[in-house]
Amino acid sequence: MSSSAMEDEAPDVVCQLEHVQGLVDALGAVRWKRHQDAVVELSEHGIILIVEESGCLQAKVYLKRELFARYDYSAHGRRRFGVSLGLLVDCLNAFSVPGQSSLIEIQYPGPDMQVLLKKVDSLDVSIYAEIRTRIPDTMPWDYNFEPAGTNPLTFTVRSAALKEAIEDLEWPGSSIQIILQPVPPSVTLKGEGHGDLQIDLMYYANTELLGAFQCDHRVSYKYKYKFLRATTTNMPSSVTKENRGSKLTIGRGGLLKVQHLVTIGKLPSSHAHVDSVGYQQPGRIAHIEFFVKPEEIEDSE
């Protein structure tokens, strides 16, 4: 076989990842229903997994190439395929051993355009899986998030507190109103049903709970409860244990962006990355973003 023919058959991406449980946690965070399709985008910069529903909710998991112990990308441009999110998470979970680090190799495409998974850190145990892919029915919608005005409307809240607040505000079929106001600087979450329940987060009262608050005018938007709940319902326990914060930003037209950080795993000494100023990064972080469209504009002053 000629070298050119061998190159044509080379996979688009071959990557190796340690701490499979961290990847399971990150992908599971955007799994808000049992049967869910995802679009996977591959590039030289890493992997992005996208899920969306009803044109009102979209989530993205960013797996930058620095997360991987090995990342070889040989395709030109960006490659895209569809896959069952539940099947992908369940297959990855089979490679995860509680309390242990597992090294797996991910390859795409296989001979029949599959995703190939293989355990590569053990001579005693061999685990191999193939996941069928498909051509996506539609292209993921571009939410084109833009700031609402010259100054961003944003705040950071402890992830555990955000999850608890949203769960407390549950009213079947209802909406949650989010109000930001500069005087006094605060965030209000309000649910309505047979009554109403309101949670006030005051910026100066507890800066450890609510931080990075930026708001120069009062805004108020309503979001469908089931979509807002999806942003935290499967938040990994590692996020709450590490006492991480989630960042919420309201963009033009009331589009809400919710951002979480999930630790994939600590860097071993053999792969530790040292940045330009000499600080060693403590771990690998996956970035997760949710975009939620508002149900209606309550008021904006």
Rank of each mutant, 00 (worst) to 15 (best):
K190D: 09
S175I: 09
W171V: 12
A129M: 04
P172V: 09
K118C: 07
L123I: 07
P172A: 06
T188P: 04
L197I: 14
G149I: 06
I179T: 12
G193A: 14
W141C: 10
S102N: 12
K190G: 01
I106Q: 07
A165L: 07
L162M: 08
T156S: 15
R132A: 12
I178F: 07
T156M: 14
N151E: 09
I178C: 13
L180V: 06
S159I: 08
P111F: 00
W171Q: 08
K118P: 04
E170T: 12
L189A: 05
W141V: 12
S126W: 04
G193D: 15
S96K: 02
M113S: 13
I178G: 03
K118I: 02
D137T: 07
D196V: 13
M139Y: 13
M139A: 13
E170N: 12
K190I: 13
L169P: 04
S122Y: 02
L153M: 15
G149L: 01
T156N: 11
V183N: 14
L201Y: 14
I199D: 11
M113Y: 14
D121Y: 12
D196T: 11
D200Q: 00
S159H: 03
P147I: 08
N151S: 03
D112T: 10
L201H: 13
P147V: 06
V187Q: 03
D121T: 10
A94T: 11
D142G: 12
G110E: 07
E167Y: 11
R158F: 02
L123F: 08
L162T: 06
N93W: 04
W171E: 10
F155M: 01
L103S: 05
A148F: 10
L169N: 00
D196E: 13
L92Y: 09
S96Y: 01
G195I: 02
T138S: 09
A160D: 15
L189Y: 00
P136N: 08
